[in-house]
């Protein structure tokens, strides 16, 4: 009767929704698959060890990605080493230490807003602050710090969300046993939330690796035909002597400068190299762009795979 009609209608809606969802998912996957297919078809012929080992060139078949991927890697290293600890620390502080109130609300609102600010704005800020004010120049460290600012809000939000999901009674149990706040954070909250935080961190890093606009703003260049100096190599000592302004290095200078020389060099990154190639006259470089695209996508998929793996392992260990 009436009830049966209602049940039938609701079942129909249920199927309808499932179908809509499946269609949209299929459409998205199809676009993604087509994109990946085109990239692979165009680029796979160029993708070999020589492509990863060669410097850029005016001849498409000789042009390689070496300075670009090394640059991307080093910039991400600086970003990771600065952005992640700062982001996690800020997240823990805001979630576990601050009193809730209007001030905390304002900070929270601003951080969430920052996560949505277009990346070019970070680039302009970094140009004024890092490149000119701190005299870092268009260097690896300036780029790394710029992207660190970019990922900071994402890491903070991820950290706070994960900490929020830990049941309050875990904290209370620890306090009841006489643990200090730091001990609670160190021995309980951080280990429990490692999965969620690392997911957030890796999503943030995957975003940073594809960023172009802020790096162009701080003056990343299109053509670099050398690698940053390996720490404590002859090249690094040459840079150190320039920084020191003399042939003779003091003990501290000799210990520190050659180790961080790579931070001060010019660089390019994979997306900028791709842009340089695609804006050339003629179609010779299209295969190179596709091949570089494959490298970038594989790197991103790799990062995401690590995130999934970590999350999976952490989930298995922790049950509330």
């Amino acid at each position: 009767m009436d009830i049966e009609r209602i049940i039938r209608r609701r079942r129909r809606n249920d199927v309808l929704f499932a179908l809509t969802g499946a269609t949209i998912t299929a459409a998205v996957l199809l676009v993604l698959g087509a994109l990946a297919f085109t990239l692979v078809r165009e680029g796979v012929s160029r993708l070999d060890l020589d492509f990863l080992r060669s410097y850029p060139s005016r001849r498409a078949e000789r042009a390689g990605l070496l300075p670009a991927w090394v640059g991307s890697l080093l910039v991400m290293l600086v970003t990771g080493l600065t952005g992640i600890p700062l982001g996690i620390a800020a997240g823990v502080y805001l979630e576990e230490y601050t009193r809730k109130g209007w001030f905390a609300s304002i900070i929270e609102l601003n951080i969430t807003n920052l996560a949505g600010v277009p990346s070019i704005v970070y680039g302009l800020m970094a140009l004024g602050l890092f490149v000119y004010r701190f005299h870092l120049g268009p260097s690896v460290i300036a780029a790394g710090l710029t992207l660190a600012l970019l990922v900071l809000p994402i890491v903070i939000v991820a950290t706070r969300e994960t900490l929020k999901s830990i049941p309050q009674n875990m904290r209370e149990a620890a306090y009841a046993l006489g643990a200090t706040r730091w001990q609670v954070v160190r021995h309980h909250l951080l280990p429990y939330s490692a999965g969620g935080i690392s997911t957030g961190v890796i999503i943030a890093m995957s975003r940073a690796i594809g960023e172009t606009a802020p790096l162009i703003a701080i003056g990343a260049v299109a053509f670099v035909a050398f690698l940053p100096p390996v720490p404590y190599s002859a090249d690094a000592f040459a840079v150190a002597r320039e920084w020191a302004g003399s042939e003779q290095l003091s003990v501290v200078e000799a210990a520190v400068y050659p180790g961080v020389a790579w931070l001060g060099t010019s660089f390019t990154v994979v997306p900028i190299q791709m842009f340089n190639w695609i804006s050339r006259p003629g179609d010779d470089f299209r295969a190179n762009v596709a091949a570089a695209g494959i490298v970038l996508i594989v790197a991103t998929i790799g990062l995401n795979a690590v995130a999934i793996l970590i999350r999976h392992r952490m989930r298995r260990r922790i049950k509330w």
Binding site: A89, H135, L136, G137, I141, W243
Partner: peptide, 25 residues
């Protein structure tokens, strides 16, 4: 300790990364 090392390293790098005279720009 790691954090301290990173922050220290940054400070040093910031103070010295000015001159990049070996590169032709």
């Amino acid at each position: 300790n790691k954090c301290a090392a990173v922050i220290g390293g940054l400070g040093i790098a910031a103070s010295v990364a000015m001159g990049q005279t070996s590169t032709i720009r």
